[in-house]
Simulated scan of single mutants.
Amino acid sequence: MNTLEQEICESRIELDKWLREIYGDSYGNFHGENDIGYDHWDRIEKLLKKVFESENHHALADSCLDDILFLISRSDEGGRIIAWLHPNVKPLSHIADLTIENFIVLCKHAIKSGEDFCDYQLAYCFHKFDSLSKDLEELLIGLFKKDAVYTKRLALESLAKHRVPNLENYITELWATNDEWAGLNCLDALKVSGCNDELFNKYREKLLKSNDEHIRTNAESI
């Protein structure tokens, strides 16, 4: 483990300890609403800036990539390390010039790792690309195939923007989760792509009958 990897590991351990103190018994089940209050994000961002702008991205150990994804996942409310809160505006990160090559490394490792908040951040950032190469398309599909419904929702939005082949298959797969909020993403994807008007009308009609007023209101606006 080199010096940079060691510093990243120590930052992860310190943040993890702080999170356990903040969330107590609910740790592991929390949604990250307090994470942005951590005092040492500046130090973490400086470390990750070195990684993001490095030309030696393939040299990082898997354990270090685990730590990096953990730090990204806990920073989702700030949207700085991965600039996912503004999906249609470049850059990929607000803390560094995150290269495409290093973004790909992060995505590949996220796909083979457990579910976490970093997944949907990465998936939503595919909006930022003017077009997708075959490799990028496969990565985005890999993120969509993860289990978390919210990750699937944001990945579908990116898939729809780029009108990937077989988009309707991903739409019906997400619809099958029976999550009404995911259903809204399906409806929006159908509208953006125009791939199946009949299915759009079918889904919209069902969502307009929801018991949730917010679902009905959103369905009406799509």
Score class of each variant (00 low, 15 high):
32 G>W: 05
33 E>M: 13
33 E>C: 09
33 E>K: 15
33 E>T: 09
34 N>C: 08
34 N>E: 13
34 N>K: 12
34 N>M: 12
34 N>Y: 13
35 D>P: 02
35 D>Q: 03
36 I>F: 14
36 I>D: 14
37 G>C: 09
38 Y>R: 04
39 D>P: 15
39 D>M: 14
40 H>V: 00
40 H>Y: 15
40 H>P: 04
41 W>K: 00
41 W>P: 08
43 R>A: 08
44 I>G: 05
44 I>F: 06
45 E>H: 15
47 L>G: 10
48 L>V: 08
49 K>A: 07
51 V>G: 03
51 V>R: 02
52 F>Q: 00
52 F>W: 10
52 F>E: 01
52 F>D: 00
53 E>F: 03
53 E>T: 13
54 S>A: 10
54 S>G: 08
55 E>G: 11
56 N>F: 05
56 N>K: 15
58 H>K: 14
58 H>R: 11
58 H>T: 12
58 H>Q: 10
59 A>K: 14
59 A>Y: 09
60 L>N: 03
60 L>C: 05
60 L>K: 03
60 L>R: 03
62 D>Q: 13
62 D>A: 10
62 D>T: 04
62 D>W: 01
63 S>R: 10
63 S>W: 00
63 S>E: 11
64 C>N: 12
64 C>Y: 01
64 C>G: 00
64 C>W: 00
64 C>A: 13
65 L>S: 03
65 L>V: 04
65 L>Q: 05
65 L>G: 03
65 L>A: 06
66 D>N: 06
66 D>V: 07
66 D>L: 06
66 D>H: 10
66 D>F: 04
67 D>M: 03
69 L>P: 01
69 L>I: 08
70 F>Q: 01
70 F>K: 01
71 L>H: 03
72 I>A: 08
72 I>L: 08
73 S>R: 05
74 R>T: 00
74 R>L: 02
74 R>I: 01
74 R>Q: 07
74 R>V: 04
75 S>D: 12
75 S>T: 02
75 S>I: 00
76 D>S: 09
76 D>M: 06
76 D>P: 00
76 D>T: 05
76 D>V: 08
77 E>D: 13
77 E>H: 08
78 G>N: 11
78 G>W: 11
78 G>T: 06
78 G>E: 07
79 G>V: 00
80 R>H: 10
80 R>F: 12
80 R>T: 07
